[in-house]
């Protein structure tokens, strides 16, 4: 008799004592960063570099053009800082998973009582930590060097920031699924996949700039609504609640879809034996 394919229920995702197991995974990564300070520097390096480059662009535009351009330049800097939140969120999740492959530790994790949902929760927690460590110094420097205060977005900043974190997790679940499917050969996606979305995410320009046929693609991304909302606050001083609601609605859809893909791929890897040699 052949066994039916394994099914997933809530008990397979989370269980009693799950919070401690999630903490065990987070503790493992915090210990890694304590022992390897250069990794902390690397977390801050790119967000700060991006902010400095776009800060000079901002200063140039503000210096040679009129006040409207100055506002537009501020929008550019806001876009850079918020987009870094999405990038760091996605990388924080994906690279924390890859760290387990690189240290050949994945086998130990998958034969421990850590459930798939708890693994994802631990990676999300690491994603938040890595994003804050990476992006907050860049935000502070933007204020010190270029007098750009992202906090002018007000309480909406928290909602924009959280929405981009959620989108980063949805993309990261896709990246981890690709790694489970194709092995270490798919690692590069952890760095490149969100860069490829940048042109359609309306980070630096409104969706209306895009060709008509491309606009529905942009509006299917939560980030586009976040950046339209950001421009609404910075340029017009209005809170675009419709865009914010659309961003969260799309995030729910993307997270649900990517979670399903991840769980399917995880089970497929258990059937095919891919978890035995995932680092190869």
């Amino acid at each position: 008799m052949t066994n039916p394919p394994p099914a997933f229920g809530m008990a397979q995702l989370f269980g009693a004592g799950g919070a401690r197991r999630v903490w065990g995974l987070v503790y493992r990564h915090i210990a890694l960063y304590r022992r390897s300070p250069i990794r902390v520097v690397e977390l801050m390096y790119w967000p700060i570099l991006q902010m400095v480059v776009w800060g000079f662009v901002t200063a140039y535009l503000a210096g040679v053009q009129n006040n409207v351009a100055s506002v537009a330049a501020g929008v550019l800097l806001g876009g850079v800082l918020l987009w870094e939140a999405a990038l760091r969120s996605q990388m924080g999740f994906s690279i924390s998973f890859l760290e387990e492959i690189w240290s050949r530790n994945l086998g130990h994790l998958f034969v421990s009582p850590l459930r798939p949902g708890e693994l994802v929760a631990g990676l999300m927690a690491m994603s938040v930590i890595r994003t804050l460590v990476g992006v907050v110094p860049a935000m502070v420097l933007a204020w010190l060097l270029y007098a750009f205060n992202i906090l002018t977005l007000g309480p909406l900043l928290v909602l924009f920031f959280a929405s981009l974190l959620l989108m980063g997790w949805a993309v990261a679940l896709g990246v981890v699924s690709l790694v489970l499917r194709y092995g270490a050969g798919a690692e590069a996606m952890a760095w490149s996949i969100l860069m490829g979305i940048t042109p359609f995410a309306a980070v630096f320009y409104p969706v209306s700039v895009l060709p008509g046929w491309l606009q529905p693609v942009a509006y299917a991304l939560p980030a586009s609504h976040v950046f339209e909302g950001m421009r609404g606050v910075l340029v017009h001083g209005t809170a675009e609640w419709g865009h914010l609601a659309a961003a969260y609605g799309l995030n729910l859809l993307w997270l649900a879809g990517m979670s399903w893909v991840f769980l399917r791929q995880f089970q497929a890897a258990r059937v095919k034996g891919a978890l035995l040699n995932i680092g190869e």
Binding site: G24, L25, Y27, R28, A31, L32, H108, L109
Partner: peptide
């Protein structure tokens, strides 16, 4: 990770 940190990780898991 140190030996103690490794044992702590798996103790939590």
């Amino acid at each position: 990770l140190s030996v103690r940190e490794n044992l702590r990780v798996y103790g939590h898991l």
